[in-house]
Simulated assay, not measured.
Amino acid sequence: MGARKKISADRRKEARKTMYFAKMNNVPTSPRKMRYVADMIRGMEVNKALGVLKFSSKEAAQRVEKLLRSAIANWEQKNERKAETGELYVTKIFVDGGAMLKRMRPAPQGRAYRIRKRSNHVTLFVDSKNTNEDQN
């Protein structure tokens, strides 16, 4: 690895130590459906977001709720204290497309239609409100 790349890699690694996130890979839901759920909680306070996800009728909401609880636990682990009400917020959440399973469905006159079973990767960042104000 070159010197410039090593310096930038070290800088990224140091910045990552102050970020609190959770990541879920290869979720067997289409990215479009998952983005709808992600848009519901983006920027929300954590306890309110958990309530929204708990009572949402979307199937993807259960998976995002589990991911959010994991991100909260990661924050608590790194800060060595419990999160208080109104302290943590969902700062960023994004959904990327994952691997696609390609299947064939029989069609009329000896043809076949392709079915694409999509998956996605979800990354969720949480942070406290006062940390965000210090940076700005």
Rank of each mutant, 00 (worst) to 15 (best):
R118W: 08
D134C: 09
D134K: 15
L53H: 03
M1I: 15
R4H: 07
V27G: 00
K78L: 08
R105F: 01
M44K: 14
Q62N: 15
V95G: 06
S70H: 04
R16L: 15
I115E: 08
I41P: 11
R114N: 08
L50D: 10
N26D: 00
D127K: 02
A3Q: 13
N25Q: 12
A49L: 04
D96C: 06
P106W: 07
F125R: 04
S119P: 03
T85H: 03
V37P: 13
E87M: 08
K23A: 11
V46M: 12
L101N: 06
K6H: 07
E59N: 04
E76K: 04
R81Q: 11
K13G: 06
V95Y: 08
K66V: 10
V126M: 13
R63I: 13
T91L: 06
L53Q: 04
M1W: 10
M104W: 09
Y89H: 11
Q109Y: 15
M100H: 05
G110C: 08
K92M: 11
R16Q: 14
A60I: 06
A107G: 14
N130G: 02
M1Y: 08
M34R: 00
M104H: 09
V46L: 15
G51L: 04
V64S: 04
S57Q: 09
T91D: 11
K78A: 02
L88H: 08
A15T: 06
I7L: 12
L101G: 04
R103S: 01
V126Q: 11
A99H: 07
V64A: 00
K54A: 12
G2K: 12
R4G: 06
K13R: 14
R12K: 10
R42F: 05
M104T: 10
M24L: 15
L50T: 06
G43Y: 11
M1F: 13
Q109E: 14
N79T: 06
K92C: 03
K129H: 09
F55P: 05
G98L: 00
V126A: 10
N132F: 07
Q62G: 12
A83L: 04
A49N: 02
A107K: 15
P106Y: 05
V90I: 15
P31D: 08
R103E: 06
N120C: 13
M1H: 10
K54W: 03
R11I: 11
G98F: 00
V122C: 03
N132P: 00
M40Y: 04
E80T: 06
V27Q: 00
M19I: 10
S56K: 03
P31T: 10
Y113C: 02
N132Q: 14
A49F: 02
N132K: 10
M44E: 15
K58Q: 09
K92Y: 07
V46K: 14
A73D: 05
A71C: 01
I7C: 00
K17W: 07
N74S: 09
A61Y: 10
M24F: 10
M100L: 10
N25F: 05
L124F: 10
R42A: 07
R118Q: 11
A71L: 00
E87A: 02
Q77P: 00
T29L: 02
N120M: 07
H121M: 07
E59L: 04
N79Q: 11
R63D: 09
A22H: 07
T123P: 05
A83S: 12
L67E: 06
Y20Q: 05
S119I: 02
R114L: 14
P106V: 09
N26T: 02
R69A: 05
V27R: 01
L88D: 08
D39Y: 00
S119R: 01
S8N: 12
A83Y: 09
K92W: 07
K54Q: 13
